[in-house]
Structures are given as structure tokens and as C-alpha cells.
Simulated scan of single mutants.
Amino acid sequence: MRTFRRFLIVLVFLGIVLGGIFGYKFYQFGQMKEQMSQPQPPAEVSAAVATLQSWTPAIKSVGSVEAVNGIQVANEVPGVIQEIAFESGDMVKQGDVLIRLDSQIDEAALRTRRAEAQLAQQEFKRIENLLPRRAVSQSQFDEAKANYDAARARVNEAEAQLNKKVIRAPFDGKLGLRLVDQGEYIATGTPIVEINMLDPIYLDYTLSERNLPRVAQGYEVEATVAAVPEETFSGQVSAINTSVNPETRTVRIRATLDNPEGKLRPGMFATIMTRQPEDREVITLPRTAVSYNTYGDYVFLIEENDQGEKTVTRRSVTTGDVNNDRVAILSGLEEGDQVVSKGLLRLRAGQRVTIQEEAADSEQAAEASES
């Protein structure tokens, strides 16, 4: 009996506690419902107007600067460096001497070959004069001629070997750092100096296969590099690869740029804009007015309700190219539509808004200056 009474007391106590909790939650819910039923104050936003502008369509990409010709100069034959005829960073012309290797042995070998050739020539002429008088046989004449031809060939071989002791610039260009020293023995294929042709210069980059119909040889390109951020370099598309990379679904593009001052160097990272030949009219907005979303981009369109209040409606849009701080709107808006340019994260569809007049005025002034 006593156990039952204790159990009953516990049940009553628990009922009071739970009842109090549920009652407090019910009271909170009522307060929230009452607050939500009250009209919310309008949110302050900045506004922008969809503007029709004339744009030159462009495709943005990244790539790297490449030399038209660029190699590490190396030697074909081993030897000791007798003379270095350049300094690091020199500009050279094709055929300019870079280094000379010790060639005493080769010069002596050439003199020997020339003496042998001279002797073979004399023997050949003597037999040639005797042949009409039948003082020598045809086989002796043929053998003398073959010996003379072989001797001349050995002279040519010795001259070619001697010429390889002089390393020359293979093309016009700018030299890099000297990698060898005078008196040093260098084995075959030792790097001597880097040489690059800097004017003109190539710009290699890739574009998605979907952009392939939008690019062709002769299209203008503009490039910027971090080393010269205040300058834009112009050129033209000079070649388009004949195949698409099956792994990345991209195609390689090559542009040729003038580089008379040598500001562009091979290996530089570049940002490239490939421009199409004709302008077109597009509706544009500030980039801050567009909310980029995985499920589609959208803007908040500002409209006026029956009570004369400004409200916002979420409107899906299709975006295009970006030019400076403005983005092209391909569909979803018309010229003159007013949208929220700042404060998108605080908004929901149907919410009342007030436009910050100062921000709106400055935005319109900026648009007027652009047009």
C-alpha cells in the first residue's frame, strides 16, 4: 500500500513538471506565431538596373608563355673550352660564335687529309693522262679515281669535325646564364647556355570543347601576366590543335604575340581573353547582383505591389561572359528591370524592401559612365 502511494506521488510530480514544460513551450510557440503574424520591417538594399550594352564577346582562360624557339645549347663533340665569346644575357644573331673548343688535333688531322687528297689528285691526273694512250688499264684509272674521291670525302669529314669545335647560335635570340667556364672539359651534350627567341612569342592555352566553335585562326587575344600587371599584351590566334584531349575534353590553342621589349618570358603564367570579331548587344548587371547557385543562378527582381510597396521576387537567369565587374544576362531579364545589387543573402521571395538612394544613385552614375 505504501509503495503504491509513493508511486502515485511520483506520477503526480512528473505530471506537474511535464505539464509546466509543455505549457511554457506552448506559450513560446504562441509568442512566435504572434510575432510572425506582425508585418516585418522592409529590408534596406542597393539596387541596379539591367542595362543594354555593346560588348565584344570574349572567352577567358589561362595558359603559359612559350618561346617560338627555345633550347639549351650543347656541344656535339667533347673537348676543352678554349674561348667563351658571350656573356650571360647577351642578344645574339644566328651564326654568332658562343664558344670555341681546343682544336689543335683536329686541325692537324685536317692538314693530313688535305695532303692525302692532294697526292690522290696528282695520281689520278697522271693516270687520266695515260689512259688515252693505253699506257694504263681501265681498272687502274677507276681505282685512282676512287682513291681521289675517298680522299676528298675524308677532307670534308675532317672539316666538319673541326667545325664542331666551334659552337654557334642556332637562331636569333636572348641568352640565359652561362653554364660553363673557360678551360673546362665538357663531354658530349653538356649544356652551355639557354637561348630563347623572344620576339615574337607564343602563348599556349586550352579551351573547353564547347567553346571550339567560338574561336578561329586570326581572332584577337589579350593577355596579362603577374610580372607586368599594368600592361595588356595583344596578339592573334595562330594555330588550333586538330584534336580534343579525350581526358580533359579541351583543345590546345596557340596565339602569337609581339614582344619587342622582351617583357614576356617563356614559362610565365598568363590570363587570356580570346575575343570574337564582332560586337553584340547584351543585357548586363553588376556581378554582385547575381547569386550563383549549383541549381541555377538567380537575382531578386524589385517590383511594386498594389499598396505601392516595393517587394522582391526571385528570378532565375542565365549568365554569360564577364567583363570587368559586369556579367551578361542571356535570359531571365529585360532591359530596365531593377534588381537587388547588394544584400541578397538577407532576402526571401515576397519580402518588402527599401532602396538605399545613395547606393542606387552611385550605381546609376557608374552605369552611365560605362555606356
Rank of each mutant, 00 (worst) to 15 (best):
L8I: 10
V10T: 13
L11H: 04
V17F: 09
G20C: 09
I21Q: 01
I21L: 06
I21Y: 04
G23A: 14
Y24S: 13
K25I: 11
M32H: 12
K33F: 08
E34V: 08
M36S: 06
Q38S: 12
P39F: 07
Q40D: 05
Q40N: 04
Q40C: 00
P42S: 03
A43F: 08
Q53N: 05
W55H: 14
P57W: 08
A58D: 04
K60S: 09
S61G: 11
V62P: 00
G63S: 06
V65I: 15
E66K: 00
A67Y: 03
V68L: 13
N75T: 14
I81D: 02
Q82N: 09
I84R: 07
E87F: 01
S88E: 05
S88V: 11
D90P: 06
M91F: 06
G95I: 11
L101M: 10
S103G: 02
Q104S: 08
D106C: 01
E107T: 10
R111W: 00
R114K: 15
A115M: 02
Q122I: 04
R126N: 08
E128M: 08
P132S: 00
R133P: 02
D142T: 07
D142A: 12
E157D: 06
A158Q: 01
A158K: 00
K165E: 05
V166A: 05
I167P: 11
P170I: 12
P170T: 11
G173S: 07
G173W: 06
Y185G: 02
A187T: 15
G189H: 12
T190E: 08
I192N: 09
I192R: 09
I192H: 12
N196Y: 07
M197G: 08
D199R: 12
D204W: 01
Y205F: 15
T206K: 09
R214Y: 11
V221N: 01
T224M: 09
A227M: 07
E231L: 11
T232S: 14
F233G: 03
F233C: 03
S234P: 01
G235R: 02
Q236I: 14
Q236A: 15
I240E: 00
N241M: 04
T250E: 15
V251A: 08
L257F: 10
D258A: 15
N259P: 01
T274L: 03
E278Q: 15
R280T: 15
V282S: 09
L285P: 02
L285W: 02
R287D: 13
T288E: 14
Y295N: 11
D297M: 03
E303V: 14
E303C: 07
Q307E: 14
Q307A: 15
E309N: 15
K310A: 10
T313V: 14
T313W: 07
S316W: 12
S316P: 01
S316I: 11
T318S: 13
T319Q: 04
N323P: 00
V327E: 04
V327W: 05
L330F: 01
L330P: 01
E334L: 05
G336F: 08
D337T: 05
V339I: 14
L344S: 02
L347K: 08
R348Q: 10
E358F: 07
Q364P: 03
A365T: 06
E370M: 10
E370F: 12
S371L: 12
